[in-house]
Amino acid sequence: MKPLAQQRILVTGASSGLGRALSVRLADAGATVVATARRQAPLDELADRHPGIETRILDLMDAAGLAKLCHTIGPLTGAVLNAGVTHVGPFNAGSDADDAAMVETNVMANVRLARALYTPLVDGRLVIVGSMAGQVALPYQAVYSGTKAFLQNFSLALREEWRDQVSVGLFTPGGIKTEMTDIEALSKLQNMLAGADEVADELMAFYLSDRALRIPGFVNRVSATATRLLPRPTITRIMERVYHREP
């Protein structure tokens, strides 16, 4: 892999949280970063503070906008597809609109981007950010868990298809302290969430490797191992208690 000073890397979901922290680290290491997000103001602030970061407005639910970005973005050496949305609460209390937004943003946007970026990324690196919710089913985040499980199989399958052209990897963090998780429904879990800066360090190291899969954090790796040792319904019952019942 080329040194970061010779790389131009796309990062989605870069206005806050993990995407922002990663963009800053890559730029500080000398890479040119193309940071995308829906909101202009955070992107402007990011570019003003950190030389080496280009910014593009991108709504992942806008298929035409995705196509335009990929057509005009120019040469890339890598991409980190990080953006995602969730909805926390009983499935029956959700809505078709919430579910469609999760499927479009977490699934279809990544599928479209991967396909469109194939040619710019030949001989480069593509990292898709999944979640432990794709490894361990989360009650009260049923649709979100489904989208992240899709990304796991999609990424690993794509890695084999593209193994001689593009190095594909899946990064699967647990909960991270971000705007997305700073909600009442997750208030009991705040002390279990990792800091975005800490996770970004691991994501950057993973990007620079040729590895297929990375689960950051000891507890997360233990949880992933448990899915191979315990019946999955048992693990799901445990997660139901973590997410829903009072301690």
Rank of each mutant, 00 (worst) to 15 (best):
Q7N: 14
Q7I: 05
I9P: 10
T12W: 02
T12K: 03
S16T: 10
S16K: 10
G19L: 01
A21Y: 07
A21M: 06
L22N: 01
V24L: 13
R25E: 08
D28I: 12
A29H: 03
A31Y: 01
V34R: 04
A41Y: 04
L43T: 11
D44C: 10
D44N: 14
L46I: 09
L46T: 07
A47E: 11
H50Q: 14
P51A: 12
G52N: 05
E54F: 03
T55F: 03
R56Q: 11
I57C: 10
I57A: 09
D59L: 03
M61T: 15
A63R: 13
A64E: 14
A67G: 13
K68V: 13
L69H: 08
L69P: 08
G74P: 04
G74S: 03
P75S: 07
T86P: 00
A93N: 15
G94C: 10
M108N: 11
N110C: 06
V111I: 12
R112I: 01
L117F: 03
L121R: 04
V122F: 07
V122C: 10
R125H: 11
V127K: 02
I128N: 11
V129I: 02
S131C: 03
A133P: 04
G134E: 06
G134N: 09
A142Q: 00
Y144K: 00
S145G: 09
A149R: 12
L151T: 05
F154S: 07
L156H: 14
A157C: 13
L158A: 11
L158F: 12
R159K: 13
R159E: 12
W162I: 07
V166P: 06
V168F: 09
L170Y: 14
F171W: 04
F171C: 05
T172K: 13
T178C: 00
E179Q: 13
L186C: 00
S187I: 01
A200G: 02
Y207F: 14
L208C: 13
L208T: 08
L208H: 01
S209M: 02
V219E: 15
N220S: 11
R221W: 09
T227K: 12
R232E: 14
R232T: 13
P233E: 11
T236I: 07
E240F: 08
H244W: 10
H244K: 12
